[in-house]
Design a protein around this nucleic acid. Sequence first.
DNA 1: TTAAAACTTGACCAGTCGGTAAAAACTCAA
DNA 2: TTGAGTTTTTACCGACTGGTCAAGTTTTAA
Lengths: 215, 215
Amino acid sequence: MDMMATAGAEKNDRTTRIQEINRKVILDAALEVFSVYGFRGTTIDQIAEKAGMSKPNLLYYFKRKQDIYASVLEETLEEWLRPLHELNPLGDPVEELRRYISFKLHMSAKKPEASRLFANEILHGAPAIQNFLKTSLKKLVDEKADVIRQWVSQGKLAPIDPYHLIFMIWATTQHYSDFDVQVRAILGNQVDRPGFHEQTAQAVLSLILNGVKVR
Amino acid sequence: MDMMATAGAEKNDRTTRIQEINRKVILDAALEVFSVYGFRGTTIDQIAEKAGMSKPNLLYYFKRKQDIYASVLEETLEEWLRPLHELNPLGDPVEELRRYISFKLHMSAKKPEASRLFANEILHGAPAIQNFLKTSLKKLVDEKADVIRQWVSQGKLAPIDPYHLIFMIWATTQHYSDFDVQVRAILGNQVDRPGFHEQTAQAVLSLILNGVKVR
DNA sequence: TTAAAACTTGACCAGTCGGTAAAAACTCAA
DNA sequence: TTGAGTTTTTACCGACTGGTCAAGTTTTAA
């Protein structure tokens, strides 16, 4: 499997209003279903039902199951990585990291499906986005690792490995969406109490930032 | 789906030598396959082939696919949680955490299949081990969270939330097995260099422990 | 108004997969 | 050696699922 462009509808390559609407409806439904059941665990019928249309109709917009999957991934990837893009080399390091972590936690809470979709894809060897990981993602991370390394060499951060720091931030923030059931099993229904998200952010921030500040 | 006992072979409930061997062969094969493809993504034929026997023969030992899956999970769970059990309330807090983190990282590197198996199960809502999570696991974590809380109140650790600390340790250590492809895509083949595992351990340890030490 | 293009659907097909049936092959204690 | 119990295999079934087809309905541009 490999990342590929969205298959258009027949003959003409113009995108009609109906196409625009239905593609979006399908991709929204697909995200919901794929993120819960994974690629193999998802049936086209499930997506079609959630999208409120028949299977052949759905297949009119996306010729194969993989096309839907690749499109959902593509759509969500950019949004998911934007916060890292915004890590500002000129800002205050601790403040920048605080912003980044807060935002990632916020995304995890607000859109856990996206996180789970990736987690599942990567867990299964990233068949559809391997190339993306090795090019775009690597480039972005290398860039930001450089930023962090400079912060360190300027004495603004403790001498930490930037890559492992980034991995730790990813792992920790996404844990709360990917392993939601486990978190719930252990913390019980306090997870649903109003202030929980803020408490979590507070705890995670102080843990990571303390490990990163100069002493 | 729910956790269930291993289905024995027919009539007599005595476990023969052949049964013992074949059950183990099957469970080893099953761990390999399930951890890569997940429950739905795995076919009984795949497991049977890896185990070197025919599908009906495999089904002679485990009546249904779910039984194999449940058995593999059950078998691996205990081993996976043992290090947390060994967190010693009487030891030096930072040293105990160092040991725990090191051991988890070591397990992630040595037996990534186990980690991936759980990650996959939990990611999909933990249908087979929900009950385990809510009872055994919760009890264990509550216990150890208490230990950490006491360390904090004795002034031996910075004032951190014990649950979020545990989550962070889990998330970070398992990241290296669960998201192996992503780590590889970003770090390249340095991952396979001899000292890599030690470097990672060093980086992760200093990050987490710095966040935890009293200042 | 109209006809071409776009959209939708019911019927269906072929491959896959979990699981069964029944009989053959093997093991082992007496 | 023998036969009861255990293990293995061949053949097969029915449900599911990804995807196709052809015919119908709706939309849209002229």
